[in-house]
Write a protein that binds this DNA or RNA. Structure first.
Lengths: 242, 242
DNA sequence: CCTACCGATCGGTAGG
DNA sequence: CCTACCGATCGGTAGG
């Protein structure tokens, strides 16, 4: 018989995917839609088409399963949205492409995006700490990258002199605000993605020129037509906390 | 003995608060910190100092308990942050005061703020729908108020002409981005509240003057260079998804 | 990958 | 507000 196959695990019961692949898919979907506490191992087993006990051949516990899924989702998001930031074009173009890629990830791979959001906001206790640790690392890494990005943009004269860390904070507020709304909006009706043009124009005004922390009043007349265009489909990621 | 007291419910076991008040306080705190699924009625009963069954004299189910807490928290948040918006001063001052009040609520009454966030992001199923309904109503009401606020600000010339709805969206992105970061930041270290000065300057640039989505360039403000490829018309890169 | 089973705990009810 | 109790389900294990 086929017991030459040492650790097959192949039982292409559905879709031709291996049990492990189906496990990833199903668990991702159920956690994303029902939450961690709202999804039981039995629910997952039913979706995969195996007995609950069999799941423990892949993960030693429900916690470990979630951690792996979160890790995969974060990596996918980063892998999708970071490249545009490192691509070519003006800094503004690259930053905007980065943002669009991140937002498209939310639209195209909602379950993975939801898992990351869930990880950042919904998990408590010891598991929560482990998850926060993982996300925190990624975020720090990303913030450092952005800080350098903004510092270079200043050297090139594309944005006014300022503390790069202030720009990172400003960016995080804008990006997280967009993401959280896109994530929570009833699927499909992305009123934010569709209004990105005007939002970006306004955002970029604050990014490129501003009398920093000192000035408060002084809303100088407008000037500056920020690059404006529809959104081009791009890839995605972004590691803000959402 | 004292059975002359018809529906007393008074058992000032701790802090002099009634059992019902303690129930509100304890449940709010536990839900906020442990999540809905992560908090059992037994946990709450233990915190209140009564038997689990006694909780059902106040609420017919765990769901009803959460709904009431969410409702109270939303009302409190609104009651705390709306007055400044309707106060006196320039529109910018009033809007900023509104924002600061909202952020202070997060700092000063973290459990109530957390309950609202939890309600918006963590509850699924039928209960989730009921909760979303409640929040949605409140939000619509608030958006309408803001739309009027911005329309008036335009009439008064404090901000440039634009679609008020665009301004509401821009505001929502900024406000939500700030809130979510303030909510998730390790308590105390509010790096956002502390940087509100520079963030606000940048935000207000985009709010007050900007050639929105359809607009062309307008009177160039006084100083405001900013490198960025010398005044060439937008790249018009199309490719948008619609 | 399955059958069989574990102790613990869940939200909630009966009845006083 | 309590004692006593319910059926259902939880995450996980034994052993093959």
């Amino acid at each position: 018989m086929e017991d030459t196959i040492t650790e097959s695990k192949t039982t292409p019961a559905a879709g031709g995917a291996s049990t492990e692949e189906r496990l990833h898919q199903v668990a991702m979907e159920l956690f994303a839609e029902g939450g961690y506490g709202g999804t039981s191992m039995s629910d997952i087993a039913r979706g995969v088409g195996v007995q609950k006990a069999s799941l423990y051949n892949y993960y030693s516990s429900k916690d470990e399963l979630l951690l792996d899924l979160v890790h995969r989702a974060v990596e996918a998001w980063t892998g999708h949205s970071r490249p545009p930031l490192l691509g070519s074009g003006t800094r503004q173009e690259r930053l905007r492409a980065h943002l669009e890629a991140a937002m498209d990830f939310v639209t195209e791979r909602p379950h993975e995006a939801a898992i990351v959001r869930l990880a950042a906001t919904q998990i408590t206790g010891e598991l929560g700490q482990r998850v926060q640790e993982m996300l925190g690392e990624k975020e720090c890494e990303h913030c450092a990258l952005l800080e350098t990005f903004f510092a270079e943009a200043m050297e090139e004269g594309e944005i006014e002199e300022a503390d790069p860390r202030d720009l990172v904070v400003y960016w995080n507020v804008f990006a997280d605000g967009l993401m959280i709304n896109e994530l929570l909006c009833p699927a499909g009706s992305n009123r934010y993605r569709g209004r990105l043009g005007q939002l970006w124009s306004r955002f970029w005004l604050g990014m490129s020129g501003c009398e920093a922390s000192g000035g408060e009043e002084r809303n100088p007349g407008p000037g500056r037509r920020a690059g404006q265009r529809g959104g081009s489909p791009a890839k995605a990621q972004k590691g803000g906390k959402v």
